[in-house]
Design a binder for these strands. Structure first.
Length: 221
DNA sequence: ACCCAGGGTCATA
DNA sequence: TATGACCATGGG
């Protein structure tokens, strides 16, 4: 596990929150919609995922049973705007079948977080980040999601090397901050929504601080 | 004409 | 354990 400076992690969060405000995440009305979005957004811009979800909603297919029995071609066509539609159609159906086998949301909610993570990861097409997105935003478990921006930003700030294994980094951050679903929710949301912007303001050199990265944003207001 | 986005799997060494 | 190929759309 990686050791991280808890105080620094918190101050970075405070700066981000003061600069950008609450993000009110994840966009999605139900836990199931959130989980579908998590699969569809893999390496894909959210604007494209919105169209795919809108297509599913329009024909009332945003439902595990309906998706599970939908023919491949039909499902692929519906989610086409989100890209990788052939793979994602399979992944969505794999996930929905597993979800139904497990008895649905209420049944899954009874599992402890580790068991639930293990189950999610057993689905072909659900990897670390997707599973953790589901755990945090659909099941409201205190899980810190690691994405490419998280590595980039924390490594530029000199807190990590950036090439640590996924769980090593996740556990390091969770240990430093302490289990806190609301905090993890907001932290990851800020990083994802503004990661591009933040990276522009954080130079590649080591030892830089976050002051510069939020100055432009504060002055705008 | 590029580049990238809220990744994951599979084959290979 | 660690790389590389592959998947595919839409916006800048």
């Amino acid at each position: 596990m990686v050791r991280l400076p808890a105080r620094r992690l918190r101050s970075v969060y405070q700066r981000l929150y003061r600069s950008y405000g609450g993000q009110d995440w994840w966009p999605g009305e139900t836990p199931f919609e959130i989980m579908v979005g998590a699969v569809l957004t893999q390496n894909t811009a959210w604007s494209n995922v919105e169209r795919a979800i809108a297509n599913l909603k329009a024909e009332r297919f945003l439902d595990p049973r309906r998706i599970a029995r939908l023919p491949h071609g039909r499902l692929a066509r519906l989610i086409k705007p989100s890209g990788y539609f052939n793979i994602k159609a399979k992944r969505l159906r794999n996930f929905c079948r597993w979800y139904l086998e497990q008895g649905g949301y209420d049944e899954l909610s009874r599992c402890d977080t580790e068991t639930l993570r293990h189950g999610l990861l057993s689905v072909n097409g659900v990897g670390h980040e997707t599973a953790d997105d589901m755990l945090l935003y659909a099941f409201e478990r205190p899980v810190f999601v690691i994405d490419a921006y998280t590595r980039r930003i924390f490594s530029r700030l000199g807190m990590v090397r950036g090439d640590e294994l996924y769980d090593a980094l996740r556990l390091g951050i969770e240990h430093a901050l302490g289990a806190d679903t609301v905090l993890f929710n907001e932290y990851h949301a800020l990083i994802v929504c503004h990661g591009k912007d933040i990276c522009k303001k954080v130079p590649r050199c080591a030892g830089c601080s976050l002051k510069r990265m939020c100055r432009a944003e504060s002055q705008k207001k």
